[in-house]
Amino acid sequence: MASTENTAPKLSEDNPIKVLFDMASYWATIWGFIALCLWLEHQVLKRLDIESGGLQVAILLVSTPAIFLATVTCIQKTPKARLILERARYVVVLVVAALLGAYLHARHDSDSYESHLRDGAMLACAKIAACKESATQYANTR
């Protein structure tokens, strides 16, 4: 069975892309876990009807680091938990990439040159009967 004692990325590796990916995936996992803790704690505080903003911030500032440190300690003591974390960080990278792609897609400016060209081509094609018919046939065959 493979040893899971050393799961941290080795900075002395020859492949800088792998080192960069390892460091990015670890940091994304850490910050993703912190964000998940904050969100869950906020939901609990809302259900407990603690509406005071200052009180919520104080509770979150104390409880989030405590939960994070307790979880890290548990993960360090349990080899199976470290193995699960090692595999989960790839999922975290995929989620971060999907969220970044969704954000960039939502923020895409439709005033770009390519967008204007596409709109102009669609308007021109709509006015030319043969072009419209060809585009309709092409779309129906796909």
Score class of each variant (00 low, 15 high):
Lys18Ser: 02
Leu40Met: 06
Asp22His: 01
Leu48Thr: 07
Leu55Val: 15
Leu40Pro: 00
Asn15Trp: 04
Ala58Pro: 05
Phe21Ser: 07
Leu11Trp: 12
Ala66Leu: 13
Leu20Arg: 07
Asp49Cys: 09
Trp31Gly: 03
Ser25Met: 07
Val44Phe: 00
Trp31Asp: 02
Leu69Val: 14
Pro65Lys: 08
Leu60Val: 08
Lys46Gly: 06
Ile17Gly: 03
Ala58Gly: 14
Trp31Leu: 09
His42Val: 08
Thr7Ala: 07
Phe33Asn: 10
Leu20Pro: 01
Ile50Lys: 08
Leu61Asn: 14
Leu48Lys: 12
Leu48His: 08
Glu41Pro: 00
Val62Asp: 08
Ile59Phe: 13
Ala70Cys: 11
Gly53Ala: 14
Thr29Pro: 00
Ile50His: 08
Pro65Met: 11
Asp14Arg: 14
Ile34Phe: 00
Ile59Lys: 08
Pro65Arg: 11
Thr64Arg: 04
Lys18His: 05
Phe33Ile: 02
Lys18Pro: 00
Gln56Arg: 15
Leu38Asp: 02
Ala35Ile: 06
Gly32Leu: 00
Thr7Ser: 10
Arg47Gly: 06
Asn15Lys: 07
Thr64Leu: 05
Tyr26Leu: 11
Asp14Pro: 03
Leu60Phe: 05
Leu45His: 05
Asp22Leu: 01
Asp14Phe: 15
Leu45Phe: 04
Ile67Trp: 11
Leu38Trp: 01
Ala66Tyr: 13
Asp14Lys: 15
Asn6Ile: 12
Ile67Phe: 11
Cys37Gln: 09
Cys37Ser: 03
Lys10Trp: 12
Leu61Arg: 12
Val57Ser: 15
Ile67Pro: 05
Tyr26Glu: 09
Leu48Ala: 08
Pro9Glu: 10
Ala70Leu: 15
Leu36Thr: 05
Thr29Gly: 04
Met23Pro: 00
Glu41Arg: 05
Val62Tyr: 12
Pro65Ala: 11
Thr29His: 04
Leu20Tyr: 11
Ser63Pro: 06
Ala24Thr: 06
Gly32Asp: 01
Pro9Ile: 05
Leu45Tyr: 01
Met23Ile: 12
Cys37Trp: 08
Ala8Met: 14
Leu40Lys: 04
Trp31Val: 03
Phe68Gly: 04
Val62Gly: 13
Leu11Cys: 10
Gly32Ala: 02
Asn6Lys: 15
Leu55Asp: 11
Thr64Glu: 09
